[in-house]
Amino acid sequence: MTTPPRIGVLALQGDVREHESALSAVGADVVRVRSTEQLALVDGLVIPGGESTTMSKLALSTGLLEPLREARRSGMPMYGSCAGMIMLADRVTDARPDQETIGGLDITVRRNAFGRQVDSFETDIGIAGVGPDPVHAVFIRAPWVESAGPEVEVLGTIESGDDAGTIVAVRQGQLLATSFHPELTGDHRIHRMFVEIVRRSR
């Protein structure tokens, strides 16, 4: 019997509660992270959906940005959905020039790439590593991955329509990111995948 991994949800702003529920449902011990002290207590970190401009600013003003970068460099597994994907990207386009990220994922993301809120949508997507059934993906003012470096594993792409082929789920080592919000659907397979990454990293 092993103790469940302790996973933090970065609680600067955004849909923290939904990630907490999803992580609890797959057996993680979940805590909110808003300080360096709290960050030091977790085995892995989820960066929720929210407004990436705001999250980036708050990470900087609370002094959390550097400790987050340091934790990531020292191998802490992190998963970001939507704004969280932007926070984990090395390069962001269509953002304010001063937007800071934690980085680590060798990808270029485009903010609000699918359009404004009236263009937000739901669709089914096959995701590598979670089984044959498609994941029902909810995209809200979502970013996409414009380009990915050689170390990045593409887990999922938009499958039909004008944006077919667009990369929306990636993994690079301990880092996982999705353009969409699995925390809103009750399908916890992506959170389970992340908890497994954390478990193996301990």
Binding site: G50, Q117, V138, I140
Partner: peptide
């Protein structure tokens, strides 16, 4: 899959507000 993308659903409308929480 051949499920078309659907816009304007209750989930994307309510979900948008979820992303504003704490703000």
């Amino acid at each position: 899959s051949n499920v078309p993308a659907v816009v304007g659903t209750e989930r994307v409308k309510r979900g948008m507000a979820e992303m504003l929480k704490g703000g």
